[in-house]
């Protein structure tokens, strides 16, 4: 357990001692801020419109602002993942420091969990920047915080499973760019799989759409905590970390 924490701390430090952490956080803050602005702008115009029409339709901040913003945040997250995970193992393999880790009295799984946890915390820090915007809503209105919490849990779970896949891809190569591009391709694929369901209703399309990470995020964005989706995410995390462990083991047989 303490070994996991040692590795995790070292990884976090190396994120924050390079510009990458700050760059990602700034970029993410900018984009999510833009989406937040759009969503509130729409909310305000619609609110005014419905008042002018004289039909005082009840409008919900959660429904109109928080949900679309977090839905977008989940998609931007897909683009952040490769940049977080690409260096995890590729960098260590290239510089040879992997030899230090592997010849230290630390289990492979501790190295993997440490690194994945650090990536997850990094992702969490990036997500935090989007909370600043939503915090503003609390200053001027009374949004419900519980569905928001569920949505953030969903974001973390979704991030966690993509990060696990990214960690796996990072062990397969010495080249960070290759690891990054590969992870990006898979993230993109897992996102667009969901689009099939828009024009197909066959069983196959249902299965395909079920495999998309975004499909499973939708209930979270509505504040619905469904065990089905949690299990999906957790099992993908397990799969990713399991593949990472296998890949690390094969590294020893091949290198």
């Amino acid at each position: 357990m303490s070994n996991i924490w040692i590795i995790c701390r070292k990884e976090l430090k190396s994120y924050f001692s390079s510009p990458i952490a700050y760059g990602l956080m700034a970029f993410f803050a900018l984009i999510s801020g833009y989406f937040f602005y759009m969503a509130t702008a729409i909310f305000v115009t619609r609110g005014l419109e419905s008042q002018m029409m004289g039909r005082g339709m009840p409008m919900d901040v959660n429904e109109w602002v928080i949900r679309p913003v977090l839905m977008n945040v989940s998609v931007i997250g897909l683009f952040m993942i490769p940049m977080i995970t690409m260096r995890l193992f590729a960098e260590e393999k290239r510089s040879g420091t992997i030899e230090l880790l592997v010849t230290s009295p630390v289990r492979d799984i501790e190295i993997i969990l440490g690194k994945w946890l650090a990536a997850l915390m990094m992702y969490g820090c990036i997500l935090l920047t989007s909370m600043v915007n939503l915090g503003l809503l609390f200053a001027y209105g009374k949004p419900d915080w519980k569905p928001m919490l569920v949505a953030y849990l969903g974001l973390l779970l979704q991030g966690g499973c993509l990060l696990a896949i990214g960690t796996f891809l990072s062990t397969t190569t010495k080249n960070q760019i290759v690891a990054g591009v590969g992870t990006f391709a898979i993230c993109l694929l897992l996102w667009v799989l969901d689009w099939v369901s828009a024009f197909e209703t066959s069983a196959t399309s249902k299965v395909i759409s079920y495999m998309s990470v975004v499909t499973h995020f939708e209930p979270f964005s509505k504040g619905v905590l469904d065990s089905k989706d949690v299990i999906f995410y957790v099992s993908v995390i397990f799969l990713g970390l399991f593949l990472t462990a296998r890949s690390m083991e094969s590294l020893r047989w091949r290198s």
């Binding site: 070292k10 430090k13 190396s14 001692s17 390079s18 510089s95 040879g96 420091t97 992997i98 030899e99 230090l100 010849t103 230290s104 009295p105 630390v106």
Partner: peptide, 18 residues
């Protein structure tokens, strides 16, 4: 074994950012 071994690979395993 790992507990009892100190290993210096051909390229020292250093983290430049530390």
């Amino acid at each position: 074994v790992k507990k009892r071994i100190g290993y210096l690979p051909e390229v020292p395993p250093l983290y430049p950012e530390m």
